[in-house]
Design a protein around this nucleic acid. Structure first.
Length: 182
DNA sequence: ATTATGATTCCCT
DNA sequence: GGGAATCATAATC
């Protein structure tokens, strides 16, 4: 995987990220759930233009955009084209289990990295990672050997543009944060 | 199924 | 400067 991978629209990149391995400081696993956000998308932070918070969402592709959600959690996005990003919603844990359980304070494997807030807590993602390159430490990405089987559906937790099927998940995975309708 | 939690942004006055 | 809204989660009903 190379930086050019992210120089496209999030709606294209998001499904292709399913099956990619993501590690932060050695902890992580397989990305099993993503959502796409576009500049002309009312549910996107970039919809009303650049701001202090969304600065990195307009920065170089292949970098991280981290924001605080509901005042409590962090959420990790991969920046694609300017104002376009992929929200990482769930990971199937593979490495660094003990460290992730320690950071989470829990050890239920099905809830360890399932959900954007849990994922960031388990991987130790904070605002410090905002704007960092995904191709440098502590990040590590590894493309899947074969394209994954991807499910699609409407995005979660938004009130605008709810009809766009811009949520993507690994078919059959029990680690997605919410089941995809059959 | 419902609610407490509680930081930051953004949009208005 | 105020107040609603927010890309969730965990605890409680």
């Amino acid at each position: 995987m190379n930086p050019g991978f992210f120089e496209r629209e999030a709606t294209i990149v998001a499904p292709q990220l399913i099956g990619t391995e993501l590690y932060v400081g050695g902890a992580g696993g397989i990305i099993v759930e993503t959502e796409a956000y576009e500049p002309d998308d009312p549910a996107s932070h970039s919809f009303r233009g650049q701001s202090l918070r969304t600065r990195s969402m307009f920065g170089p592709a292949g970098h991280a955009y981290v924001y605080r959600s509901y005042g409590i959690h962090w959420c990790l996005n991969f920046v694609c084209r300017p104002g376009s990003a992929v929200l990482i919603r769930a990971v199937q844990p593979l490495a660094g289990l003990a460290e992730m359980e320690r950071r989470r304070g829990r050890n239920d494997p099905l809830l360890l990295c399932s959900g954007p807030g849990r994922l960031c807590q388990a991987l130790g993602i904070t605002i410090d990672h905002d704007g960092m390159s995904l191709f440098e430490q502590p990040f590590s990405l590894k493309a899947p050997a074969e394209p994954a089987l991807v499910m699609t559906g409407p995005r979660i937790g938004i009130s605008q543009a709810i009809d766009h099927p811009w949520r993507f998940g690994l078919q059959g995975s029990v680690y997605v944060s919410k089941r995809f309708p059959a």
